Amino acid sequence: MKWSEICIHTTNEAIEPISNILHETGSSGVVIEDPLDLTAERDDFFGEIYELNVDEYPEEGVYIKAYLPVNSFLGETVNEIKQAINNLMLYDINLGRNQITLSEIHEEEWATAWKKYYKPVKISKKITIIPTWEDYEAVSSDEVIIELDPGMAFGTGTHPTTVLSIQGIERYIEENDNVIDVGCGSGVLSIAAGLLGAKEVYAFDLDEIAVKSTKLNAKLNKVDKKIVTKQNNLLDRVSMKADMIVSNILAEIIVRFVEDAWHNLKTNGIFITSGIIQAKKQMVVDKLNQQGFRILEINEMEDWVSIIARKNQ
């Protein structure tokens, strides 16, 4: 089978929404080529071994690449992707150059292309994320390993927004907590919560493919008995009370359900939000404060922000 590589030259701000668009239109995964990765030194990362070629990276912005099967619908699919990306401007998302290019790639090249981007990465004190094909042995007795297949959804969970979320979960989760994951994507936050001691996790996503990916990844990591995965729009019609709510999505989406999160949290419950760019940080802080949340932490990595708040009464 032949595949077409679609490459979007855009901004860090647009990574999450464009990745979601590509996923919804049939891509089996995305590759992010960010020049910051060439020089980044992250305090809590080790065991990260990438063979990166500087010539493959843009001088500014990022490349988002995905692979689509070459068939009679390819033209329609590409037009649909272009339109959906342009619609992001309605949400004041900076698309940068917003240049889209297509190139043909054979299946054998496509299969091997993934693997050079993904190696075991320790992203917090306890958690290491590994791709399914890597042989890896824990280096300490308390190390928690999450296995992910980047072909399922949204990469391997090493984007700064995911790292900040998991680090927050690790610091605040208590044994036997009930957790809600809003916009679960590949399910990596739900899996982390389950492996770190949650009693039950409810994982919600509007995207049916993300729901399937979460179920597959949960089973792969042997926490499928703990994780209830459902297709749902944010917290609409969710009545349960949780000890912790986590959400790694756009700031504009987070502010829409802050009130619902308040009602779905127990007293002293923790709300972990991520996927927030610097320019939108104050908007989320103001909304949380307005609702009555107490801000516990604001953490930053590269251009991304995570806010951890508590429901006090």
Rank of each mutant, 00 (worst) to 15 (best):
N87K: 05
K119F: 09
I93M: 00
E134H: 11
K115D: 14
E175F: 10
A111S: 15
S190Y: 02
T162R: 03
E147H: 13
R171I: 11
V121R: 05
V179D: 00
A192G: 01
Q167Y: 08
P150K: 05
Y172M: 09
A193P: 04
S140H: 13
L164W: 01
Y117L: 10
I146A: 03
V139H: 15
I173G: 04
S190V: 07
A113T: 15
I146P: 00
N87W: 02
E107D: 14
T161P: 05
I127H: 07
I173N: 03
E109M: 13
E109T: 15
A84Q: 10
L95K: 00
R171C: 07
H159Y: 03
G96F: 04
I100E: 00
P120V: 04
L189D: 01
L102S: 12
G168C: 11
L102K: 08
K82I: 13
L196D: 01
V182K: 01
I127C: 11
N94I: 06
K82D: 09
Y136F: 02
N94L: 04
A138V: 15
S124D: 01
A138M: 12
I127F: 12
N178G: 13
A193G: 04
I127Y: 07
Q83T: 15
I173T: 03
Q167S: 13
D142R: 04
Y117T: 11
S103F: 08
N94P: 03
Q99N: 13
N94W: 01
L90M: 09
Q83M: 14
W110I: 12
W133L: 01
E108C: 12
A193H: 04
T158R: 03
Q83E: 15
M89C: 13
A153P: 08
L164V: 12
Q99S: 14
Q99K: 13
I100G: 06
V144D: 09
A138I: 13
I145V: 07
L148I: 08
E137R: 10
D92M: 05
D135S: 15
R97N: 14
S124A: 06
N87R: 06
A84W: 00
G157W: 01
V144F: 10
A113R: 15
I85G: 00
N87E: 10
Q99A: 14
H106Q: 14
P150M: 02
E107C: 09
S124K: 00
D142H: 12
T132N: 10
W110V: 14
P160F: 04
A192W: 03
E109G: 06
G151R: 07
D149K: 10
L88E: 00
R171P: 10
I85S: 06
V163L: 03
D142S: 12
A192I: 08
L90A: 05
T161M: 07
S140P: 03
S186Y: 00
P150N: 12
I166F: 10
K115S: 15
L95E: 02
E107F: 10
P120L: 07
S124G: 11
L90G: 08
A138T: 11
D181M: 05
E143H: 00
I191D: 04
I129W: 03
E143I: 05
A113W: 14
D92W: 02
E175P: 06
Y172V: 10
Y172N: 08
H159C: 15
L88Q: 01
N98P: 10
V182M: 02
K119G: 15
C184L: 06
I145N: 11
A192K: 02
Y117H: 12
